[in-house]
Design a protein around this nucleic acid. Sequence first.
RNA 1: GGCCAGGUAGCCAAGUGGUUAGGCAACGGUUUGCAAAACCGUCAAACGCCGGUUCGAAUCCGGUCCUGGCCUCCA
Length: 508
Amino acid sequence: MYNTMNQRLEPLAPVRPGEVGIYVCGPTVYDVPHAGHARSAVAFDLLVRHLRASGLKVTFVRNITDIDDKILKRASETGEEPLSLSARMTGIYQDDIGAINCLEPDHQPKVSDHMPEVISLVEKLIEHGAGYVVDMPNGSKDVYFSLKAFDGYGKLSRRNIAELEVGARVAESDQKRDPLDFALWKGAPGESYGWQSPWGKGRPGWHIECSAMSEKYLGFGFDIHGGGMDLIFPHHENEIAQSEASHPGQGPFARVWMHNGFVNVDKEKMSKSLGNFVTIRDVLGRNDPEAFRYFLLTVQYRGPLTFDSVKLEDGRVVFPGVDDAERRVDYLYTTLERLDALAKQPAEPAGKTPKELAPLEEVIRGARGKVQAALDDDLNTPVALAAIAELAKAANDLCDLAVKRRKDKVLQGAAQALAVVGSAGLRSSADVLGLMVTEPAEYARRTRERRLRIRGLDASSIEKSIVDRTDARAQKDFARADAIRAELLVRGVEIADTPEGTVWRIGV
RNA sequence: GGCCAGGUAGCCAAGUGGUUAGGCAACGGUUUGCAAAACCGUCAAACGCCGGUUCGAAUCCGGUCCUGGCCUCCA
């Protein structure tokens, strides 16, 4: 894995052999999640899946920040209770992330459920001389972390305190000993929202929850800490300061730091504040969840990922990159369906592999290993997808060959046996990526339904046209048959004449 | 200004010292009544620019240009 802390690829060496503890910074739930949240969730979901597939016992923790200034602000604007707003948004987050096949973490701790842990960590920092209490002019008390008390500050983000001080904002620093000190606990004056604490009513600073909750669920000095690149500074830097200052002389807070890259729109980072975001729900309204996930995996997790959206003349908004991915997912499911059909065909028991199948067999049997090797290399998903593409191509080749050489009993037996292997290999290769988790028939059904709805089409009228065309073809009236096909194609309906009759599908 | 990424064929995207990444698009072919799908082939003597190291550089070193991110809440 690439470790942000030392900017190098390094082998994963868990604290306890065979077990891995992972803590990922999840969302602040004041609004619905967008494609950027999806990317982060998928990146770390993939990590967990891959490590588990590699035989490691993974404990995966992803927190939910359900109390912070933005949530309080949004709640006061709408009159909703802050925790009710954040609970609602948490539900949406979990639904949307679940829809794109992200496994549920083992723990999803919320700050609001961990006040005792937060308060005791703040107390511990005060005891160690790393935290100090300040009386605010409004009568409340804040607690700050003292940067001077921790000499490793800046090691993750490669910043030095002197340079930071030059650019630091002075306005909010009146009560702090040093402008770079950050809040561990923010006092809540008067009727403000808050929890009781040794410093009166208040609420946690943003960073302290992750220090407190990661330690509770994984212990100090766990294996992997992850999150978006935007969290490197100040969030993760501050987590390190708090956690290591509360465990002096006990080594690093986390051993490996992993950060996912952004989703960009027009070369700019997708974000709430820029207003250029596309929500997960927007995407799932138009594309299949697996297509969106495939799209998110087309780039290695650390690189930038461009998300295009295009407004068509008729006003519809489409996502060309996700559409491309959906065509690939169609292809993979169609391939799987063909393999399964071949695998089920009655055939002679396989003997020795015929010479013409040998190269296909090599590709088909080798694919899962290539996927594994690609993921071992810092989750190189484009290479993993390339291995799956090669497998699918060989599988289709195999199916084509089996059709062409229907009478060759020896080949049929071997092809059928290889189809069984190919089907299993494709499923297991896709499964570690969180793809193709459903059956081909179910995928075909749900995508057809969705595409019919998006295009405002009706299956029965399409089928009626197809019956008309079949009649025309039976009478060798090909001009009429072709006219019907052209008319269907205009509506987005693609048809194919197969030995089993005419089938149709709606294009992406 | 400081720190961090990235610039690879029409487009997307791997590769990080010497033999095919992969995908999309386009075009040609096998197949088909014609198509579609699938497969084969072409596009591909590609690696931002300038120097250097080397028998050999997309890959290492120095410089430089461009794009983005962080430095304030952010996945």
